[in-house]
Simulated assay, not measured.
Amino acid sequence: MTRPFLTNPTARRLFLDRHLLLHPGSGSGKGHDLETVLDGLGFVQIDSVNTLARAHDLILWSRRGQYRPSALETLVARRRTGFEHWTHDAAVIPMRFYPMWRLKFERDEARMRTRWPASRRENWEDELETILKHVADHGAVSSLDVGENEEKKSSGWWDWHPSKTALEYLWRSGRIAVCHRRGFRKYYDLPERVIPQEYLSVRREDAEIVDWAMSEALERLGFATSGELAAFFEIASRDEARAWCAAALAERRIVEADIEMANGARRRCFTTEAMLDRAASLPAPSSRVRILSPFDPVLRDRARTERLFGFRFRIEIFVPEAKRTYGYYVFPVMQGERPIGRLDARRVGQAIRVRAFWPEAGERVGKARRAGLLAEIARIGKLAGTTSVEFLEDWMRA
Rank of each mutant, 00 (worst) to 15 (best):
A322P: 01
A322R: 08
A322Q: 08
A322L: 10
A322K: 11
K323C: 01
K323A: 12
K323D: 13
K323V: 11
R324Q: 09
T325S: 12
T325R: 14
T325H: 08
Y326H: 12
Y326K: 08
G327K: 13
G327P: 10
G327L: 13
Y328N: 11
Y328R: 14
Y328M: 11
V330H: 10
F331D: 00
F331A: 07
P332R: 08
P332I: 09
P332V: 08
M334C: 06
M334K: 07
M334S: 08
M334P: 03
M334N: 02
Q335M: 15
Q335A: 14
G336F: 00
G336V: 02
G336R: 10
G336A: 10
E337G: 06
R338D: 08
R338W: 00
R338Q: 14
P339M: 15
P339S: 04
I340F: 00
I340E: 00
I340P: 01
G341D: 01
G341K: 04
G341V: 01
R342A: 01
R342S: 01
L343A: 03
L343Q: 07
L343P: 09
D344E: 15
D344S: 14
A345C: 10
A345D: 04
A345P: 01
R346Y: 10
R346T: 02
V348D: 14
G349P: 07
G349K: 00
G349A: 05
A351N: 13
A351M: 11
I352G: 02
I352L: 15
I352W: 10
R353L: 14
R353S: 10
R353E: 15
R353D: 11
V354S: 05
R355M: 06
R355C: 02
R355Q: 09
A356D: 12
A356K: 13
F357A: 04
F357R: 14
W358Q: 13
W358F: 15
W358E: 13
W358N: 08
P359R: 06
E360K: 03
E360Q: 12
E360V: 03
A361D: 13
A361R: 15
G362M: 07
G362I: 05
R364Y: 02
R364W: 03
V365K: 05
V365I: 15
G366H: 10
G366P: 07
K367A: 15
K367T: 14
K367F: 06
K367Y: 07
A368E: 15
R369C: 02
R369S: 05
R370S: 07
R370I: 00
A371N: 11
A371D: 14
A371H: 07
G372P: 03
G372R: 02
L373Q: 11
L373H: 11
L374R: 14
A375E: 15
A375K: 15
A375Y: 05
E376S: 12
E376H: 04
E376F: 05
E376K: 07
I377T: 04
A378Y: 01
A378H: 08
A378P: 01
R379P: 02
